[in-house]
């Protein structure tokens, strides 16, 4: 009934065909022109390098930094980007060198090589050292994001002691939406917040697909899923955390916005774990209010709506007509 129709005016239709023709063309060309591979690789590498260098200047770079640890994460990213970029250029340069100097010469047999111990040792040990270095460098950031750092408001063991979070909320993923539940911020703090994730209280505020917070708020997130593995991802927060069936996964963030922001900021919450047919549709919004007061206004309005005991105001075409 709902058969797929092929639309020839869609550029995505032609893309794989173009690639295929390009591949076949290159294959045939290389039979006649021994520099064909060298030319292709040079163009590709030059293109990729130019794109990367230009990206920050044309707005294709990282999204805005929106949490207390986003700067740290970006520094790690840049460090790794720099290291891998360096080695990319080095290795690709070598490939180009080899392609130029050792292009096939008709009538000569290729020279077989059986490896070189010293070389192999070098290209195993050097990356090994670098990887170990990266592993060590990222440790403090990782520990901090996982609640093991010096965030004094987080209890290191979630089960006991209690956090001094400003906002405690659970986000429950399911195919395909985010079910959100806030704990009443004015309620006394909990001794075991983790258990609250599975034991709702009467005063909780229920919402869907929208997480609200305000700059500087210490937000404690308890992630759960009703079905398969999902992943809570807000690029601006640099926070990506899987939600595992049967488990409550705690995480946290403190949102930041540029000073002087007077409107609410909306960032996309995207599911980052392929979770089924409509995975792409599993989106929500993280709404950062400009300040605590406007968050509180929003919260009390939503809480009042949730305890509504009268008929909601009429909307829709008939209501508009009589207005």
């Amino acid at each position: 009934m709902t058969t797929q129709q092929i639309d020839l005016s869609e550029w995505t239709f032609w893309l794989p065909i173009a690639f295929t023709i390009f591949g076949i063309g290159l294959f045939i060309l290389s039979r006649f022109w021994t520099r064909a591979w060298f030319a292709t690789f040079t163009l590709t590498i030059a293109g990729v390098t130019a794109l990367t260098v230009a990206s920050p200047f044309v707005g294709w770079w990282l999204p805005a930094q929106g949490s207390s640890f986003s700067g740290e994460v970006d520094n790690l990213f840049l460090l790794i980007m720099f290291l891998t970029g360096l080695f990319f250029l080095l290795t690709e340069g070598l490939i180009l060198f080899v392609l130029w100097n050792h292009a096939p010469k008709p009538g000569t047999a290729p020279l077989p090589i059986h490896g070189d111990h010293r070389l192999e040792l070098i290209w195993t040990v050097v990356p090994g050292i670098l990887l170990a270095l990266i592993a060590v460098i990222q440790m403090p950031t990782w520990a901090r994001m996982k609640g093991q750092g010096n965030e004094s408001w987080l209890s290191a063991r979630y089960e006991s002691g209690g956090d001094k979070a400003d906002l405690l909320l659970t986000v429950q993923g399911r195919q395909w939406e985010w079910r959100v539940r806030y704990r009443d911020p004015s309620a006394p703090p909990l001794a075991r917040p983790l258990e609250w994730a599975t034991h709702p209280e009467a005063s909780d505020l229920h919402a869907v697909n929208e997480v609200h917070a305000y700059p500087g708020a210490k937000v404690r997130l308890l992630l759960r899923t009703q079905d398969v593995i999902h992943s809570f991802f807000v690029p601006e927060l640099r926070l990506k955390q899987d939600m595992l069936p049967g488990r409550t996964v705690p995480t946290w963030f403190i949102p930041t916005v540029p000073a002087g922001t007077s409107n609410e900021t909306r960032w996309e919450i995207a599911c980052a774990e392929l979770c089924g047919g409509n995975h792409y549709r599993m989106r929500g919004h993280l709404v950062i209010h400009p300040d605590k007061a406007s968050f509180e206004t929003w919260y009390s309005t939503a809480a009042r709506e949730q305890s509504r005991r009268s008929r909601p105001p009429e909307t829709g075409p008939l209501a508009r007509k009589t207005n």
């Binding site: 797929q4 129709q5 794989p16």
Partner: peptide, 8 residues
């Protein structure tokens, strides 16, 4: 296979 995702 890449094509099969394209539809109106």
């Amino acid at each position: 296979a890449t094509l099969s995702g394209c539809g109106r």
